[in-house]
Amino acid sequence: MAEMAITRKNNSARDLGLMLVVWSATAIIIAAFTWIIGDFIIHGFERLSWSFLTTSPSNAGRSGGIAPILVSTLLILLIAITVALPIGVATAAFLSEFTRVGGRVRQITTLSLDILAGVPSIVFGLFGNAFFCIWLGLGFSILSGGLTLACMVLPILIRTTQAGLSSVPDEWRRGASALGLSRGAALTHILLPAATPAIAAGLMLGIGRAAAETAALIFTSGYVDRMPSSLDDSGRALAVHIYDLTMNVAGGDANAYASALVLISLLILINSVAVTLTNRYGSQRITAS
């Protein structure tokens, strides 16, 4: 991420006003989220243990652990990202670099992606159920769930990648062209690396949204909490498990809070991996000026 330093700090009233707004907004956000996460830690930490992660749920999830659910969740996420990332980046590259600004192709595609981003997740769930589970015959399976989520995160990935590419200054493109680079080389060596922070942000948002998804998965990857033995098996995702425990299972709250803590920790892990990758990849990029 580009670091910026503004050297001149001016203690004018307007500057103070801006600082006041920014600091109080940050304080509100941190306070709200400390409250929420604190609530989950208070209620869920007690149940957390190594065996919670490595055993299967029993008694409808009230006791036992979440091992099979964790594995199913990771597999669903992997499928979603493996499918959506290449298609998403390619689509964004096409829109930003191979279509004219204001051209019809770009307008129609962008508009349709905006609409796709607004389709509610439950519609994706019902669509995934009809298309992947029944029409393609994949049944209730981890594969169906992953593919449904891939459809769901696709517009997010395209959108953020495109935003990143479109903010790369045109001089860079002209420069690349002057150096005799082909469009493909310019894309892989200059433009995509420059857009990496945006792609990473999109990836995190996508993974976050996918991991948090309940409505789209209950109809596609299903409810079975057995350890999956292949991608054709039905596997319950963590968010579905949390939803079932809180809304449907009396006495399931303690394990629901603990599962939510696991999900949150999982996201911190994925997130820090993404940040590390971004930094490594980002350091290879051209340094402007």
Binding site: L74, T82, P228, L277
Partner: peptide
């Protein structure tokens, strides 16, 4: 590059699971 890592991780997981299957 990210895709490669994802694929590698997927491979490891799958290998682990086929072992569990056995």
């Amino acid at each position: 590059m990210i895709t490669m890592n994802v694929l590698r991780a997927l491979g490891i997981l799958m290998a682990g699971m086929s072992f569990a299957n056995l």
